[in-house]
Amino acid sequence: MRIEVADAALATALGGLGSSGGRAEDGVVFGPARVTTWAEAEEELTRAYRLAHAAAQENAPVVFVVDAAAAVGRGAPLDAAVAVGLVAGGRCLAFEGLRKDEYASVIGYDGAEPPSRVAATVEFLVATGVGRGQTVMVGSAHVGAMLP
């Protein structure tokens, strides 16, 4: 798989599934960096577009990994914009891929669980097709907070 995840610990944990030079035809995993300016936010979202676009050419699965706090709107505004944008992007990809059985989902990670749990979740989601178009939370820091 092609894996581009900004968080270093997560990137290491996901190393068993692929790398930044991995094959998009096997699937893509993208985790945005934290951002402080609109230019950075646009760049992270565009990186997501490029990877998802590459996966779409190959009917390959897509998993976005976002900060769980940002995904429920508890992060800084631009981090929340990127995270919730990717939640919506995962839904759009899943919807668009239904006819061709293309898979997409989103993982919200709160940092409290070991990063290996995220790697195991990616592996499970892609292997089973469970959670298509949904956001799966790894961690319990935001129980009770409604997803957008």
Binding site: Y49, A70, A81, A83, G85, A88, C92, F95
Partner: peptide, 27 residues
């Protein structure tokens, strides 16, 4: 459309992002 629409990956991301902004700015 941010809940999922065919042909609107760009628009869905943008309008989902608007909801992220809405919540974070509300706080």
């Amino acid at each position: 459309a941010q809940l999922g629409n065919v042909g609107q990956f760009n628009y869905g991301i943008a309008k989902g992002g608007v909801i992220g902004l809405t919540r974070a700015h509300a706080l």
